[in-house]
């Protein structure tokens, strides 16, 4: 492989990793607080569709981004209400939301854009930071990205700082590990859990919009196609720690890019093995074969107090 092709490969690995990064950072925060959102997929799909439709309607991708994020946060609000106020089973309600999101976006796509499975929309242009973009060979393919990709990196840094150095991080951990004790310390468990789920909705909104009006500039039926579930696998493989979760997103993104790269290079690896690799790696991790694994103690356990 030439250096040019390698640079293109790295660039496409990053592009596949970014939506995972957005979704799994939000999910990490939410799971640290004890709420598992099986509905990441639905949040991303809703955001991708609403961002595409509104970006097209207003002729302004910024409006699309705003509306997409708000839509995903509304889905997250539904999830938070079901998980925290109604104390419903988090897995089931998450799957229910995903079914609803697929049905809703497919129906709306047909109604707004006619009987097509895919529409092109206007979106953000690509951009490369000064200096980095001028690096020979790698500057173009690797660093020329939609600005949202750089926002993802900033988001990771911000979440790392908040979880590591602020009281908010401690409060979230307390709520996810021992909600009763957190309550006795005067923390409103339900309020914190609403907050973390809404944050997951916010990041999934960015991730879904990145796909439809950022990277691809199209909306396709069911275009998230499992990325939400892979993001959950990334959090699991990441052992509920930020650094490892981010690394997992890039590994999974690279595995996706390899699905297209390897056949082009004439390497014969079963495609299915690459597609299933995120789930396989996550399973190996939870099986304890990759070091000791520990989920937040109160993960998926509803809190029955106030």
């Amino acid at each position: 492989m030439t250096w040019e092709l390698f640079a293109v490969f790295i660039g496409s690995s990053i592009r596949f990793a970014i939506p995972l990064l957005f979704a799994s950072v939000g999910e990490l925060v939410s799971e640290r607080g004890g709420v598992l959102n099986m509905s990441l997929e639905g949040m991303m799909l809703t955001a991708a569709f609403v961002a595409a439709a509104t970006s097209q309607a207003f002729g302004d991708p910024m409006m699309g981004l705003l509306c997409g994020v708000i839509a995903a946060m509304l889905v997250a609000l539904l999830q938070a209400f079901l998980s925290n106020t109604l104390r419903a089973n988090q897995i089931v309600t998450g799957i229910g939301i995903n079914i609803l999101a697929i049905g809703g976006t497919t129906l709306a796509l047909r109604e707004i854009f006619g009987a097509r499975a895919s529409v092109e929309v206007s979106g953000f242009g690509k951009w490369s930071p000064p200096l980095l973009g001028d690096i020979p060979i790698f500057g173009g393919p690797v660093f020329t990205q939609v600005w949202l990709a750089y926002l993802a990196i900033a988001l990771v840094a911000g979440v790392w700082f908040v979880l590591r150095y602020t009281a908010i991080g401690v409060v979230i951990a307390a709520v996810g590990e021992d909600p009763q004790a957190a309550r006795k310390a005067g923390i409103s468990v339900v309020a914190v859990r609403y907050g973390v789920v809404l944050f997951a909705g916010f990041t999934c909104g960015l991730g879904g919009a990145f796909l439809s009006i950022g990277d691809l500039q199209t909306f396709t039926e069911n275009m998230i196609n499992g990325a939400g579930y892979i993001a959950i696998a990334a959090v699991i493989f990441g052992n509920w720690k930020l650094g490892r979760t981010v690394a997992a997103c890039f590994v999974f993104g690279t595995a996706t890019a390899l699905q297209y790269q390897l056949p082009a290079m004439g390497v014969n690896v079963p495609n299915a093995l690459l597609i299933m690799s995120p789930y396989l790696l996550a399973l190996i991790a939870v099986a304890g074969l990759a070091g000791r694994q520990r989920a937040p103690t109160a993960l998926t356990v509803p809190y029955w107090g106030r």
Partner: peptide
């Protein structure tokens, strides 16, 4: 039908 089923589940 997906929508109806999703609403029933939720």
């Amino acid at each position: 039908v997906d929508i109806v089923q999703g609403v029933i589940v939720l």
